[in-house]
Design a binder for these strands. Structure first.
Lengths: 191, 191
DNA sequence: AGCTGTTGAGAACATATATTCTTAGGTGAA
DNA sequence: TTCACCTAAGAATATATGTTCTCAACAGCT
């Protein structure tokens, strides 16, 4: 029997995330992707077929291991505290890096229908999770009765994307934490 | 005397905005930029030196003719109504297109210090304008006294960037308008 | 140990792309 | 009209970049 593969595909995907976050899709050249993943050219094309297809796989995995676990808290956990927790974790994720999915949407959204679909699906899902969380918070009397759930959820979703952009520019994210509190405060029922 | 230049530099910059919005910086190839501006290769390099330098000029002009006029309303006009007006105009700007400055930040922010600086400057300025507007609204008794001005301004700034991303994906922006109302409502003094 | 067939590293290739050069043509003053 | 000098269009060039190919090295089975 022949030699066994010494690379781990998921690990390659994970390592590529940083490269793509730094330089974007077109800015990330194969030489650097190859160099910074424990991989080689030949294996790359056998495994992934093309740079474009590789991007899709990296994005799927990015959503799976980076975004989904953070969003999961919104579904599992309850109320306003869950939203606060979400933002804490999200800020940690995008701090100094930004969000790979958002970057790809802004770079490729017009030309690549698949990226666009990924983006729409992600935003819909996020908004849906916020709605569920707000509903539970409402049931538990944690937020004011006059809060419009859907509009507020969309608002929170926009806010998340804004964080992704800010994360690239802002070294220090303390301000973002304060802003989150200012955001959630008015939703809460008064003392 | 020789023939006079038949191109208008500012017009070329304006025409290039759409190309860059569609394909990003690396995705916009010179052939298309040349083809879609009333211009030619030779003149391009005589006038702009390089694609990179051209981008800086396009971005400066984008800020000047697209972003600055919208922000100006925050400084000129007063109170909550000015903020509402700002969002109305901003949504119109980014609808179906996104924001060129934001796109460049997400694509090039890591590699290009000048873009990063432009981005920081823009966000600082925006936040500053929001603060001024909120201060005046507070003086006029339009918003609740317990609103934290700086945190709220940063929050609004994040929100704006979220719109820029959403604008690329969302064909219909009615929801964004609703979300804005839901955002500003809680700030207002009660009935 | 010897064979087999895959791996890993990088050379090679074809294409794409930014930039420069060439050339035909035209404008406007003398 | 004539001429100087610029423009417009695109060919040419050099480089960058995605993809394929070559080949020595090696792990695992008999």
């Amino acid at each position: 029997m022949p030699r066994k593969a010494q690379y781990d595909v998921t690990q390659v995907l994970d390592q590529a995330m940083d490269v793509l976050l730094e330089h974007g899709y077109h800015g990330s050249v194969m030489d650097e992707i190859i160099a910074r993943t424990d991989f080689n050219r030949r294996g790359f094309y056998i495994e992934f077929s093309s740079k474009q297809n590789f991007l899709y796989l990296v994005l799927e995995r990015y959503q799976q291991i980076k975004l989904a676990p953070i969003i999961a808290h919104l579904n599992d956990s309850h109320g306003l505290r869950a939203i606060e927790h979400f933002f804490e974790q999200y800020i940690r994720l995008v701090k100094g890096k930004g969000c790979l999915l958002i970057n790809c949407i802004t770079e490729l959204g017009f030309d690549d229908a698949r990226i666009r679909e990924m983006g729409r699906h992600y935003l819909d899902n996020l908004q849906f999770s916020f709605i569920g969380c707000l509903e539970r918070a409402l049931q538990h009397g944690e937020i004011r009765r006059d809060v419009q759930l859907e509009a507020t959820a969309l608002q929170l979703t926009c806010y998340v994307q804004g964080f992704a952009v800010n994360g690239i520019l802002a070294a220090n994210t303390d301000e973002l934490k304060l802003a989150t509190q200012a955001l959630l405060g008015p939703l809460a029922t008064g003392p």
